Computed example of a mutant assay.
Amino acid sequence: MLAMQYRFVLPADYDMAIIRQRIRERGHLLDGFPHLEWKAYLWSAHDVRQPDTLNTYAPLYLWQDNEGINQFLASPGFQALCADFGRPQIDIWSVWHCSGSAEMAAAAHCHQQTLPIAPGQSLQALRQQEQALATALHRQGALCVLSAFDPHQWRLLRLSAWPASPDDRQLETSTACYQIGYVASKRG
Rank of each mutant, 00 (worst) to 15 (best):
F33R: 03
G181H: 09
Q124S: 13
D84G: 10
A148N: 06
A176H: 14
H97S: 13
W63Q: 03
Q131Y: 08
S122T: 05
Q121M: 11
S44I: 03
I69R: 04
M16T: 00
A132K: 14
D65G: 11
I69L: 08
S75A: 02
L42R: 10
F78W: 02
Q153E: 15
A148P: 01
D31F: 10
L146V: 10
T53S: 03
Q121W: 03
Q121P: 05
Y178E: 03
R49K: 15
S99N: 11
Y41K: 00
Q5H: 09
W63N: 01
R127N: 14
Q128H: 13
R20L: 09
Q170S: 13
G181A: 13
F149R: 09
I23N: 00
I92D: 00
A45L: 05
E172W: 13
F149D: 14
W154T: 12
L133A: 12
W38I: 14
L115C: 13
F33Y: 14
T135H: 06
D167A: 15
L81H: 01
L115D: 11
F85L: 05
I69S: 01
W43D: 04
G32R: 06
R87E: 08
A161K: 03
Q64S: 11
Q5L: 11
F33G: 05
F33S: 02
W154C: 12
L60E: 06
A105I: 10
L60D: 01
P76Q: 07
L60C: 09
R169W: 14
L115V: 14
I69D: 00
M104W: 12
P59D: 00
Q71H: 01
Q79I: 06
A164Q: 10
E103Y: 14
G27I: 10
Y6E: 01
V183F: 11
Q131A: 12
Q153R: 10
A142E: 02
R26K: 15
S185D: 10
V95L: 06
T114E: 15
R127A: 15
H97L: 13
R169K: 12
G188P: 12
D13Y: 02
E130A: 04
Y182T: 05
N70M: 07
H46V: 13
L62G: 02
N66M: 13
A80S: 04
P88L: 00
L126E: 01
F8H: 08
W96D: 09
R26D: 15
V9D: 14
T53L: 01
L133K: 10
L115M: 12
A45F: 01
A106F: 13
R26L: 15
I90W: 02
Q79C: 05
G188H: 13
L36W: 04
D84P: 00
Q89Y: 05
D13T: 05
A74I: 03
A164V: 12
F72D: 00
V48C: 06
L171A: 13
S122W: 03
W162S: 08
D47S: 08
S101Q: 09
A148I: 07
Y61A: 06
G27Q: 09
